[in-house]
Design a protein around this nucleic acid. Structure first.
Length: 423
RNA sequence: GGAAGCGUGCCGGAGCGGCCGAACGGAACAGUCUUGAAAACUGUCGUAGUUAAUAGCUACCGUGGGUUCAAAUCCCACCGCUUCCUCCA
């Protein structure tokens, strides 16, 4: 949710953000009108209520014979209060309805425009130059017997898969490497719930435009999360946390579920776009003034992890129109996928400023003892999709795949995943 | 799934229609005392809205409704917790 003070004091800043996102500017004026109305209705209710409270006290202390008359007068007051309370509630709900539609105010320097209007910040690493006919990750997975797509479909339908043998072990090795790196950087590991209540799902900003991307269990009124970010953001819901020792950092591991409703026909081959995968997510709770600096740190940790996996990549600065509703700035890291001769997104890190925290009612105590809304940030540290880039970039002429050195300790020192020799 | 009990401030714990935003105790913070600390004593000590205001007013005692002039207190529903039974990885 956007800041009401900002709405009152500088609505043009919000309008500029809406413009950059390609979203409605009129809604800002609607919000202002609704906010003025809410305050007026609330003031009316409160003064009537005060009158009633005062009157009630005289009823309590009045002698018996005067009570009947006083109660009769009080009944009129009570009716007025009830009407005023209803009007105040309506006005408040009307405001909320508008406020929840306005997406986070984008940070300065975020490129305007849509999906294709990102800035490339840098390209890192060397793209492999194969002297042989390369295979895509699907072929490699099949030939190495580490990925079983057919049986995934048989058991669960399209976009499901089995990771098998060294494939399964490689993913767990990667997650362990990532988790160790996170722990070293001061993150607390969390294995999170993947079913969450509607309030939490809404609070994190996932029930807006893309609600149909999310699995929902009507019998239990619970949502399956597409990222542990949801549970990690909900973790401190309705709390006033202590940030005097620095940011609270969590590394959440979970399985993630996505319906991929709007992407029929896209990336149908392999495990690039699937309904279920695993992810290690970094999540930070920080003072708002530190959010931009924390964002750069998250990005640096992501790059470090990509480098440990020896993957060529580029960092892009996402345009305003392609930001999630909660994000004020977002960087994606895309790894080179040789079979597609293009970069594909492996990580994403968003600075959500105070937007999620305001929705989820999360504050911190400042030095002067006052409370203030905190800022949240998130960033991917490893996901199943990384296997695509690892397999393809490190394939060898003999069909084997070289395991990056940093991963080897987690695989008993194994240096190559080799095709099975047929008898 | 069945039965009973319970949900109050940072924690413990009273209150069970008006005098309750809430006794009392602990923790925490500030001060007095002390060379310093402890102890003792004194004070502060929930969150939010409204407002120029740390004045006043309003809201909040699991959540949402209801009864009443008036609800932490009565009624209903829901959620959660505990114990017992049943079941189960």
């Amino acid at each position: 949710m956007i800041d009401l003070n900002l709405l009152r004091e500088n609505p043009d800043a919000i309008k500029a953000s809406q413009r950059a996102r390609g979203a409605s500017e009129e809604i800002v004026d609607e919000a202002i009108a609704a906010e003025v109305n809410r305050r007026a209705k609330l003031a009316e209710f409160e003064s009537l209520r005060a009158e009633q409270n005062a009157h009630s006290k005289t009823v309590a202390t009045a002698p018996k014979e005067e009570k009947a008359a006083l109660v009769a007068a009080a009944q009129v007051l009570a009716a007025n209060v009830k009407a005023a309370a209803a009007a105040a509630t309506d006005a408040s709900e009307a405001l909320d309805k508008i406020l929840w539609q306005i997406e986070n105010v984008v940070c300065e320097g975020v490129p305007a425009g849509g999906e294709d209007d990102f800035d490339v910040l840098r390209e890192v690493g060397t793209k492999p130059n194969f002297g042989f006919t390369l295979k895509d990750h699907t072929e490699l997975g099949l030939d190495l017997d580490i990925l079983d797509l057919e049986r995934g479909v048989k058991v669960s339908g399209s976009r499901f898969y089995f990771l098998k043998g060294m494939g399964a072990r490689l993913e767990i090795a990667m997650m362990s490497l990532a988790l160790d790196q996170a722990a070293e950087a001061g993150f607390t590991a969390l294995i999170t719930p993947t079913l969450v209540r509607p309030e939490v799902m809404a609070g994190t900003g996932f029930l807006g435009q893309h609600a149909d991307e999310i699995y929902y269990l009507p019998a239990d009124d619970l949502y399956l999360t597409g990222t542990s970010e949801v549970a990690l953001a909900g973790y401190h819901r309705d709390e006033i946390v202590d940030l005097t020792d620095g940011p609270l950092r969590y590394a959440g591991w979970s399985t993630c579920y996505r319906r991929e409703a709007g992407s029929a026909g896209r990336d149908t081959k392999g495990i690039l776009r699937v309904h279920q995968f695993n992810k290690l997510e970094m999540f930070s709770y920080v003072e708002p003034e530190q959010a931009e600096a924390e964002h750069e740190k998250l990005l640096a940790w992501q790059e470090l992890m990509l480098q440990k996996c020896e993957l060529p990549y580029r960092v892009i600065h996402t345009a305003a129109g392609d930001l999630g509703s909660s994000a004020a700035r977002k960087y994606d890291i895309e790894a080179w996928v040789p079979s597609q001769e293009t970069y594909r997104e492996l990580t994403s890190t968003s600075n959500c400023t105070t937007f999620q925290a305001r929705r989820l009612n999360m504050r911190y105590r400042k030095e002067d003892g006052k409370t203030a809304t905190l800022a949240t940030l998130n960033g991917t540290l490893a996901t199943t999709r990384w296997l695509v880039a690892i397999l393809e970039n490190h394939q060898q002429p003999d069909g084997s795949v070289r395991i990056p050195e940093a991963l080897r300790p987690y695989l008993g020192g194994t240096e190559f995943i080799k095709p099975k020799v047929k008898a």
